[in-house]
Design a protein around this nucleic acid. Structure first.
Lengths: 210, 210
DNA sequence: GGTCCTATACCAACCAGTTGGTATTTTTCG
DNA sequence: CGAAAAATACCAACTGGTTGGTATAGGACC
């Protein structure tokens, strides 16, 4: 059987969904079967539509994206859910993964990355932003992290040492810096990554397989 | 093809390996093909012996267990490695997992658990002490953790709250205790689990899927 | 009744990271 | 060259966890 993949979109911004439809249907292997503009419709109708992949905007209403995700997971349907979000917020991403999402993309992603993500989830591989790439080189990882969160080279170096459970003091000695400098880098890192504690920073590192 | 599984044992205590052989060969599906008494012999001969499963004592010498593990991982053989260790030390366990071990058992495990672990790794499932059981109930998890590390009921409760990133202050309020009491419980927990920092405690929680 | 375990509580000193500033130098790039 | 970004450095106040103590009350088990 070689029928076209059935894609559903859940987003309450018509202009966005229309654009996305046009984009996706250029691909002869994809078929956008439905657009849901609210959560309630989605939850009542998705079992009749039976899409293969759902592109779900987290900010959809009634109920919200996370509730939908958790409800869909409970139903155990043969459905891959890819979250489309505007925020590159790791904790949200982790929550989505925990609730059973198969992928997580930023809305400023491009056509190719979306297709790749769809391809990946259909092969049962995770498609979480950068998470799906633990085979990339350090340098490639850095470039991705840099592009997404505007992390600088030095901050990246420090991130690698934090990963190794170095304290600020140890990092300072290792890089021949003042502890104050390390504090500053760390502070800036946390601001850029929207992270609130050392623990969350470690979770970020683990999640992104840095 | 339904040939017997070929098991290799690497341990420098003859009495232990002999006992283990006898135990394993009672099972008609298993065949202990080799016993290695040092790391060097293991590394030179294992590719000729081609066992399906290696039961590796971490404390074997020349080179030590962790080096062997890392070397074997690099060679990318069709071989499952189950670590046999005397210590229920989570950090070592995590290190073994990172270095590519497929399982990790304590030497005081029993025949059944060993067979189960072998079965699991042959199905490509991890067999790490308690890790392989995220389908068990909270209560079963507690009993296992309790038996392995002598964690008390109250300490367990507090562990569950630490997992949720509650601070000591929040835990105290939640359980109507003094912060001091929570500190004490936490202190005892860390002593029992041989853990040195809040971060390691969280790693323990994640590793054991508490 | 005595011992052991568990749970509770307290304390001071300490360590590490966090926050919200300021400020200077060096590098990069148009 | 000049502006912006990056890297460096400093500081005080604060939060939260860690260490190494002590101590008491209530059950459980022998």
């Amino acid at each position: 059987m070689n029928t076209r993949l059935r894609i559903a979109i859940a987003d309450d911004h018509l202009l966005f969904t229309e654009g996305l439809c046009a984009l996706l249907e250029k691909d002869s292997l994809l078929d956008v079967c439905t657009v849901y503009q609210d959560g309630k419709t989605l939850l009542t109708q998705i079992e009749y539509e039976k899409p293969d992949v759902l592109l779900l905007d987290l900010k959809i209403g009634q109920p919200d994206g996370l509730s939908i995700l958790s409800e869909l997971s409970k139903r155990n349907l043969p459905l891959k859910v890819i979250i489309l979000s505007t925020y590159s917020d790791t904790l949200t991403m982790m929550e989505c993964k925990r609730l059973g999402a198969h992928g997580y993309l930023l809305k400023n992603t491009n056509h190719d990355e979306l297709l790749m993500a769809i391809e990946r989830v259909m092969k049962n591989e995770p498609a979480f932003l950068y998470l799906d790439t633990n085979h990339r080189s350090e340098e490639e990882k850095f470039r991705y992290i840099q592009q997404t969160w505007h992390v600088t080279r030095r901050e990246w170096e420090i991130l690698l040492l934090i990963k190794k459970q170095f304290t600020n003091q140890m990092i300072a000695e290792h890089l021949n810096l003042s502890v104050y400098t390390v504090e500053t880098h760390r502070k800036n890192l946390m601001q850029k990554l929207a992270i609130k504690s050392a623990l969350n920073l470690h979770q970020f590192i683990q999640f992104h397989e840095i």
